[in-house]
């Protein structure tokens, strides 16, 4: 336990931190700048397509948390009519097992990750709220067709430090995607 190297180590470390002073910061100014998320992002919501859903409840069975509540009755053409399709996103862990297991691609993970609410009750999403809309877009998780249409993810690895400056692709700022539903 000596100052064996006469402070050389400290000097080298100081030189490194000094070098970092001239590297561009990697901070992203979040609400103004947003990175493009992965095409397969498992966002904090689910998107449900009522026209494709047969009410088979495979999704509900595969959910580890028992989050999805489905109530159906038998309709005129001997099909299931979905009366209630409710997901408690407050308990959901966004594992994506329900989406993977749906045989009719009637369920998808959402793109958005800005779904904070003030009340827990607001996190329980009903049939109407789960539908596709402007603010509720599906992600490509386990849905290769949707995945192909989404923009490429911005990656920090591709960020060119030598060229300087922020080279990450950002989502253009839009008011619409700001708040939750």
């Amino acid at each position: 336990m000596k100052f064996e190297r006469y402070g050389i180590g400290i000097a080298k470390g100081m030189a490194l931190t000094f070098k970092h002073l001239f590297r561009p910061p990697i901070t992203v100014q979040y609400p103004e700048e947003k990175l493009v998320v992965s095409r397969r992002i498992r966002g904090n919501e689910l998107v449900w397509y009522p026209d494709r859903c047969t009410g088979c409840a495979t999704c509900a069975k595969s959910c580890p948390q028992g989050n999805i509540e489905i109530v159906t009755h038998v309709g005129d053409e001997n099909n299931y009519v979905v009366d209630k399709f409710e997901v408690d996103t407050g308990r959901c862990m966004f594992c994506g097992l329900c989406v993977e297991s749906c045989p009719y691609e009637a369920l998808a993970m959402g793109l958005s990750y800005e779904r904070a609410q003030y009340r827990r009750g607001q996190l329980v999403l009903s049939k109407e709220e789960l539908r596709l809309s402007d603010v509720r877009q599906p992600s490509g998780y386990a849905r290769p067709k949707i995945e192909a249409t989404l923009p490429e993810q911005s990656l920090l690895v591709n960020w060119d430090r030598e060229k300087g400056g922020q080279k990450l692709s950002l989502v253009p700022l839009s008011k619409k995607r700001g708040r939750g539903v």
Binding site: S38, R40, R42, C95, L97, Y141, Q153, L156
Partner: peptide, 25 residues
Amino acid sequence: LYMWREREKLLDLFEMVCGQRLTYN
């Protein structure tokens, strides 16, 4: 923070593969 920068790159890659940054499943 220097190490997080590299970890962040890995998390980006994980996000690309399985859609999440922490709980990959």
